[in-house]
Write a protein that binds this DNA or RNA. Structure first.
Lengths: 233, 233
DNA sequence: TGTGACATATAAGTCTGACTTTTTGTTCTC
DNA sequence: GAGAACAAAAAGTCAGACTTATATGTCACA
């Protein structure tokens, strides 16, 4: 994905951000800009820019005469794509993955329902295309190809919902699905029932059946929750 | 709320951020750091820090030899609390309010269901306290007092869900509810049915009845959608 | 012993100017 | 007209001097 090393300050962020989210500097820890600048071998101005960005993510707070203090985890802006990526790459990856999957289970059914109302003909076409792609790659250890279509499918749903905030969750869902294939329990071919559900969702959206699209998508997300042993009933 | 004018760069952000989100500089517009620094009467270093923050919000992109270009709206990080505040204060406030209300309708029922499972005794107590506060202020034009308890109620639900991402939406919900009372259609006393629903949710959570808590909360959010003429059935 | 005012040290904040690097657009040549 | 060399423009980086807020320690006084 986006290799985010633009400029020296970006390079510093890629090192310091994960360290903070990983708990390497526990909340309350105090850092000093000058010391950090020395450690990363950059000028103070560059380090200041990095600190400003961390501050805008609510990861740290910069105060005069005190330094740069790490904020408590509860205040972090966990919706920031960068923060999400850092946490997914770090130690509390499982925890983050659970949070995101629960979020998916809340958002995606509603998004599917909205898509059934608002989706354009082109989006419906793209959706069925994705579903067919999933079917075509559902057997024979073609997990990567399957993943591509799976991600595309959910992206279309979120975009077609017409809600800008749902649309912005496309990257997050992509990250979760990719994580499931690459790191978690996805060694064999995907569950045939799940594949069928995707096809049915595409059909429901095309037919404009909002409640059916919502319900079917709910079944998909319930499956995702169960995969992570998050009980729903 | 948080008066975010910390430092010169914060002051610049409070002026430049809303201008961008309001579309004053349409996507594709090119700004130059030096010119901005002159206009805001700050040094280049301060302006650079401000630009870095805007960049981390995906509002702008800074490229050599070209300048600071405003990104297309679809790429903005609309989950950033700062961005949400700027947009709520600007011209597309109604649009933003709708997006957020739809998001609420997705998240809050699930959060309530989770709360019924995970809420501590203290949280249950706080919840019923909030509900009682709403009842006590539901008549006689005590809208401000009602709002305080309403906000507190939804915050407790989101926190008690045990999901860190839901918990972070507390501020957003607070902003939406406050907006409804202060700017939108809330001239008279709140709908008695809504008040009753809150009491019932508190009761369902205390009883550990997840599906009932979820369903009741769904009714609350459906009401919020209807207030904004967003049809659900 | 406690409390208030005052002094001091500290780290962030700010500004300026010089220099570097990347990238775009032009121009020159074949 | 295609491609290479060149020049200009804007961001990027750095170093150093200075300012400002503020936490903390000190000391007099009650």
């Amino acid at each position: 994905m986006t290799t985010r090393g633009r400029g020296l300050h970006g390079h510093v962020l890629e090192s310091l951000g994960p360290a903070i989210t990983a708990g390497e500097y526990p909340p309350g820890s105090v850092l000093r800009t000058d010391e950090l600048a020395q450690r990363f071998e950059v000028s103070r101005s560059v380090m200041r820019e990095a600190v400003r960005v961390l501050e805008s993510m609510y990861l740290v707070e910069s105060r005069r005469r005190v330094g740069v203090t790490v904020r408590p985890k509860a205040e972090w802006n966990v919706f920031d794509p960068q923060v999400i990526r850092w946490r997914l790459a770090g130690a509390d990856r499982p925890h983050q993955l659970r949070s995101l999957t629960v979020l998916r289970s809340a958002v995606e059914p509603i998004a599917a329902g909205l898509s059934a109302r608002h989706a354009t003909a082109a989006q419906c076409a793209e959706l069925t295309e994705c579903a067919l792609g999933m079917v075509a790659n559902s057997r024979g250890h073609k997990l990567e190809e399957y993943l591509v279509h799976d991600v595309a499918f959910h992206r279309v749903i979120l975009n077609a919902s017409g809600n800008e905030m749902f649309a912005r969750l496309g990257d997050v869902v992509a990250e979760v699905l990719a994580g499931r294939t690459h790191h978690e329990v996805m060694f064999e071919d995907p569950d045939p029932a799940a594949v069928t559900l995707h096809v049915q969702v595409a059909e429901a959206v095309r037919a404009g059946d909002a409640s059916r699209a919502e319900e079917l998508t709910r079944q998909i997300t319930v499956g995702a929750l169960q995969e992570l042993d998050i009980l729903a009933p």
